[in-house]
Simulated scan of single mutants.
Amino acid sequence: MGKETTDPLVIEALEWLVRLRDDKAGEEVRRAFQTWFDQSEAHVAAWEHAQAFWKRFDIVQPEIESIRNSQKFLNRRNLLLGGGAALVGTGGLYAISRSDLFADFVTDIGERRTWTLADGSLIELGSYSALSSNFTETSRQFELHRGEGFFDVAAASKRPFSVNAAGGTTHALGTKFNVKYVGDLVTVTASEHAVMVRVGASSPAKIEQGWQLSYSKSGLGNVTRVDLGSIEAWRQDRIVFQDVPLRRVLTELERYRQGRIILTSKSIGDIPVTAIFSTKQPEEALQTIADTLPIRILHATKYVSFVYSV
């Protein structure tokens, strides 16, 4: 998204823009903004960038609606301001192809599905997930492109079962395990028996039943004990958070609703959240967070919501 998301002053300007659009903003807020605005020419330029960025939403929204209505096979979130998946410029809106576009198993936003494989194994995918498969006579390999999957593996000692995600591989040593790939983080949980996780050239880590680890490009994290009921709550259309940073909670909620949720302040992203939400009511969950934490939410358009501090 360019300068709008990397320049700290532009981010500050966006937060001021959001505050000023709030119906509850009083004269004190306006005076504070004027003080900020008058500090330097850089602040003025940042304000202009923020205004241009905001106006872009109104331009993008009708194009997104048109594309969604005419091309159902395209991934909706790929068309929206995220991860380099869309570009908005003089030529309009361009969708960039993704490796998950022709995945074998796909769920839409808010959808949860289960498949039975030819070998008897079961795969359940959560909201907004995509999985590719490569079955051969000697192996059962999968690639999780995004989202979350629960795997109940049928025994076949001569055909190893593994799931790749973000450069790491989870090998089934038993029956059941869960893999979640959201943002740049992959989290693997052993639900029954054990799994082995390997990332790059690092030594593999064994995860026993009831334990979990996460990994990213920086390598493997620590193995920790977890409550399996909470981890697998998504299979009963619930998500459970226990002292989870707000930024991760919002990223999770994005998987269950249309559009983006943008934090205007890094500091509020660290606020811990403990709650249980229904995946069928993501808007109510978002509002509950706003009602219980020192934050507010401004829905700029149907597809973009800003979260900012009170």
Rank of each mutant, 00 (worst) to 15 (best):
K3S: 07
E4Q: 13
W16I: 06
D22E: 06
D23I: 05
E27G: 03
E28A: 15
R30A: 12
F37R: 13
H43T: 14
W47R: 10
Q51A: 09
F53E: 10
F57M: 11
I59Q: 14
Q61Y: 04
P62G: 11
P62A: 09
R68E: 15
N69W: 00
N69K: 15
K72V: 14
R76Y: 05
L79M: 14
G84C: 12
G84T: 10
L87F: 08
V88G: 04
G92I: 12
S97P: 11
R98Q: 14
D104R: 07
T107E: 05
G110D: 08
G110S: 06
L117D: 10
A118Q: 15
D119R: 09
D119P: 13
L125C: 11
G126W: 02
G126K: 08
S133N: 07
F135C: 02
T138R: 02
S139I: 00
L144H: 02
L144W: 03
H145M: 04
F151T: 07
D152P: 00
A156M: 06
A156W: 00
K158L: 10
F161T: 10
A166W: 06
G167V: 14
H171F: 12
L173Y: 09
S191P: 00
E192Y: 00
A194K: 02
V195Q: 02
L213I: 08
L213F: 03
Y215E: 06
S216V: 02
S216F: 02
K217R: 13
G219T: 09
V223G: 12
G229S: 04
F241A: 04
V244M: 15
L246R: 04
L246P: 01
R248Q: 15
E252F: 01
L253T: 09
E254C: 04
G259Q: 11
G259K: 07
I268C: 06
D270M: 08
V273P: 05
I276H: 01
F277C: 08
S278G: 10
K280N: 13
Q281N: 11
A285P: 03
A285W: 05
Q287A: 11
R296W: 01
A300W: 03
F306H: 13
V307Y: 02
V310R: 11
